[in-house]
């Protein structure tokens, strides 16, 4: 009995001593600022910054010696200011962004013509055919973006079959943008008080064909381009695009669109609402 106790203790002590020396020998000396930077980062490891996780971002910022090209979309300007303070550098300010779904092809607007039977991933369906509605650019509604979102900022609306972005959770990490095989989701300026205007369609087909599949498709008529006083709208391949850097949110284009493809978000309700409830699948979650 006593021998067992003694020998166990001896093994314990010897192992501890060995471990101590090994730990000393193989100690990794690291810039302590890496830990400090890592501390202020959100720790979600979403990869939105372009690095393999927060730690990697911290290491890279410390190593680089300036913050040019470094931006944590999740933490935003506050986090970057903290990082800058730790490193004694100047942070590059960026306007807050938010993900935007540029498709309004809901079940009502773009009714299904075919039935897809297979694993529910947009990526596969995209390889296979143009989608249940027949629109080769529109949302497939199988939720690859929702699966990619790490911040619970998206869900599929069962009624419209389209993804919805929960604005206050969205960190603009861009995971959904890369997940979408049709590049429907775009990161756009959040805008003052969340107000923004965008073309909710990415269909590049000719107007008549696009309209055949979807009631709210951009038909490339160009009316919005003409009416825009700030040259913010461009027309390319039968598709209008509003440059958020130039858009002054005057809303002149919204009523002009014959198919209600231009959406305005977070504007106070007006007496005469142009966009019907139906063409506004991107209901704002507050």
């Amino acid at each position: 009995m006593i021998y067992a106790v003694i020998s166990l203790c001896a093994i314990g002590i010897i192992s501890a001593v060995i471990l101590y020396f090994v730990a000393q020998k193989f100690k990794v000396i690291e810039d302590p600022r890496i830990d400090e930077v890592n501390e202020v980062l959100p720790g979600a490891n979403c990869g939105g910054c372009g690095f393999a996780g927060c730690r990697n971002f911290a290491e890279s910022t410390v190593k680089a010696g300036n913050l040019e090209g470094f931006f944590c979309p999740v933490g935003g300007n506050t986090t970057m200011a903290q990082v800058a303070a730790i490193l004694g550098l100047q942070a590059v300010e960026k306007a807050p962004m938010v993900a935007v779904v540029r498709c309004s092809g809901s079940r009502a607007n773009a009714p299904s013509k075919y039935r897809f039977d297979g694993p529910a991933t947009c990526f596969f369906a995209h390889q296979l055919f143009s989608g249940e509605s027949g629109c080769p650019y529109g949302c497939l509604g199988l939720g690859d973006c929702v699966a990619a979102c790490k911040f619970d900022a998206m869900y599929m609306d069962p009624e419209t079959g389209l993804p919805v972005i929960i604005e206050e959770n969205c960190t603009a990490c861009g995971a959904c943008v890369t997940a979408c095989p049709r590049s429907i989701i775009e990161l756009r300026n959040k805008g003052p008080k969340g107000k923004r205007i965008f073309v909710s369609c990415v269909n590049k087909e000719k107007g008549a064909i696009a309209r055949k599949n979807c009631a709210v498709a951009c038909i490339g008529c160009g009316k919005c381009v003409k009416v825009c006083p700030h040259d913010a709208i461009t027309m390319e391949n039968n598709l209008a695009y509003i440059d958020f850097a130039k858009c002054k949110l005057c809303r002149k284009c919204v009523p002009e669109c014959p198919t209600n493809a231009i959406l305005e978000i977070n504007f106070p309700l007006k007496k005469e609402k142009v966009a019907g409830a139906e063409s506004k699948p991107e209901a704002v979650e507050v």
Partner: peptide, 8 residues
């Protein structure tokens, strides 16, 4: 009937 689309 509605055509069904799936992979082979």
């Amino acid at each position: 009937s509605t055509l069904i689309i799936s992979g082979s």
